[in-house]
């Protein structure tokens, strides 16, 4: 039997993914996620010989044909204003965002 995502796990994932969903979207996405999990259940049944390596790429990268390292030298970009002009909000040379939330980590000396 394939794994199914319960609502609590789903909501946690949504939070980690920095999304917020309305009910209609959440219902569709959870149903499709469960269908996808069902379709990958087959992976568990595939006989994988002992010692089979994981491939991060299909093709090999022997040194003879992989890219040569380049010298570590910085190069100025010719149009920083063009980059800044893409930003939704800037002030001077800065990108502007709302307050960054932070949580105080409780440690020694924090006890009242």
């Amino acid at each position: 039997m394939a794994e199914t995502l319960d609502r609590e796990t789903f909501d946690h994932l949504v939070e980690l993914a920095a999304l917020e969903l309305d009910e209609i979207q959440a219902e569709y996405l959870r149903r499709e996620l469960n269908a996808q999990l069902a379709s990958i259940a087959e992976l568990a049944a595939i006989p994988i010989p002992e010692g089979t390596e994981a491939s991060l790429h299909g093709i090999d990268y022997p040194l003879s044909r992989s890219a040569q390292p380049r010298s570590d030298e910085w190069q100025p970009y010719d149009d920083p204003d063009g980059i800044l002009a893409q930003a939704p909000q800037t002030e001077g040379r800065y990108f502007v965002v709302p307050d960054i939330p932070h949580t105080r980590i409780q440690g020694k000396g924090d006890e009242q």
Binding site: A18, E20, Q86, P88, F95, V97, P98, D99, I100, P101
Partner: peptide, 19 residues
């Protein structure tokens, strides 16, 4: 933050803005 779409809603907190 740096390019592309940003919500038109005024958000008080960066994480809410991301979402």
């Amino acid at each position: 933050v740096k390019y592309g779409y940003r919500t038109g809603d005024k958000m008080m907190d960066l994480r809410d803005q991301y979402k």
